[in-house]
Simulated assay, not measured.
Amino acid sequence: MSDNVQDRLDQGFYGTPKLKPDEQNKYLGTYRERVYLGITFNDLQINEGACLKAIELALQENPSFILKFHGKLPTSIVKVGMKIAKNTGTHFEYLSNESFKNSTDSFAMIVCHPKQALNIPDISAQKLYPDLFITKESSNDNTKKSFWSRIFGSL
């Protein structure tokens, strides 16, 4: 009986215990196995257009999924994301929990299933939609040659 009372008191002081709280904080309040696509702040900084297009494609393929926004996202990106969610008929959540991390490798937006595990091995947009992202190798083909290599390079 005393264990039950102690559990009840602990719940009153600290709140209801969560299962895997660190994982839920990393993946914007959901579990890793439910995530289909994850966009980090760094991904958005590097190629915002491709990331938003990947979100749009993921939601068109899976309209029963949910789009989750990190509370620290710029409003311009949130507005575009909300428009994408509205056009695809998808629900979205804007989460401003202080326990969510805010670094370049933190997730800014997530497309996930609300109740079912998906177990996608790699949730990065670059792996799921590689044709949207231009790699550095393909963009380096048009590098500028120096003045001297242009003059003497043809010899």
Results as ranks from 00 to 15, higher is better:
Met1Ile: 07
Ser2Glu: 14
Asp3Ala: 14
Asp3Glu: 13
Asp3Pro: 07
Asn4Trp: 01
Val5Met: 04
Asp7Gly: 01
Asp7Pro: 00
Leu9Trp: 01
Leu9Ser: 08
Gly12Asn: 00
Phe13Lys: 09
Thr16Lys: 15
Pro17Met: 08
Lys18Thr: 13
Lys18Asn: 09
Lys20Asn: 11
Pro21Thr: 12
Pro21Ser: 13
Asn25Ser: 12
Asn25Gln: 11
Asn25Gly: 08
Lys26Phe: 10
Leu28Pro: 04
Leu28Cys: 06
Glu33Asp: 15
Glu33Cys: 15
Tyr36Trp: 09
Leu37Glu: 00
Gly38Asp: 03
Ile39Arg: 03
Ile39Phe: 02
Thr40Asp: 04
Phe41Glu: 03
Asn42Leu: 13
Ile46Leu: 02
Gly49Trp: 00
Leu52Cys: 10
Ile55Ala: 11
Ile55Glu: 01
Glu56Lys: 14
Ala58Met: 01
Leu59Cys: 14
Asn62Ala: 08
Ser64Gly: 15
Phe65Pro: 09
Ile66Thr: 11
Ile66Ser: 04
Leu67Gln: 08
Lys68Cys: 06
Lys68Arg: 14
Phe69Cys: 10
His70Met: 07
Lys72Val: 02
Leu73Ala: 03
Leu73Tyr: 07
Pro74Ser: 13
Pro74Thr: 04
Pro74Gly: 10
Thr75Asp: 13
Ser76Thr: 15
Ser76Asp: 14
Ile77Asp: 07
Lys79Gly: 12
Lys79Asn: 15
Lys79Gln: 15
Met82Gln: 14
Met82Ser: 01
Ile84Cys: 07
Ala85His: 05
Asn87Arg: 12
Thr88Pro: 09
Thr90Ile: 02
Phe92Ile: 04
Glu93Gly: 01
Leu95Asn: 03
Leu95Gly: 03
Leu95Glu: 07
Leu95Pro: 03
Leu95Ser: 08
Leu95Phe: 00
Asn97Thr: 08
Asn97Val: 04
Ser99Asp: 14
Ser99Lys: 12
Ser99Trp: 02
Phe100Glu: 10
Phe100Pro: 05
Phe100Arg: 07
Lys101Trp: 01
Asn102Glu: 12
Ser103Leu: 05
Ser103Met: 03
Ser103Ile: 05
Ser103Tyr: 04
Ser103Glu: 12
Thr104Leu: 10
Thr104Tyr: 03
Asp105Pro: 01
Ser106His: 12
Ser106Ala: 15
Ile110Glu: 02
Ile110Asn: 06
Cys112Gly: 01
Pro114His: 04
Pro114Leu: 06
Lys115Ile: 02
Ala117Gly: 09
Ala117Gln: 08
Leu118Pro: 10
Ile120Cys: 01
Ile120Thr: 04
Asp122Ala: 07
Asp122Gln: 11
Ile123Asp: 09
Ser124Val: 11
Gln126Phe: 08
Gln126Asp: 00
Leu128Glu: 06
Tyr129Met: 05
Tyr129Gln: 02
Pro130Leu: 06
Asp131Gly: 03
Ile134Thr: 11
Thr135Trp: 13
Lys136Val: 14
Lys136Met: 09
Ser138Val: 13
Ser138Glu: 15
Asn140Tyr: 10
Thr143Glu: 12
Thr143Arg: 15
Thr143Gln: 12
Lys144Pro: 03
Ser146Phe: 04
Phe147Lys: 13
Phe147Ile: 13
Trp148Pro: 09
Trp148His: 12
Trp148Ala: 15
Trp148Thr: 14
Ser149Asn: 13
Ser149Phe: 05
Ser149Glu: 14
Arg150Lys: 10
Arg150Ile: 10
Ile151Cys: 10
Gly153Asn: 05
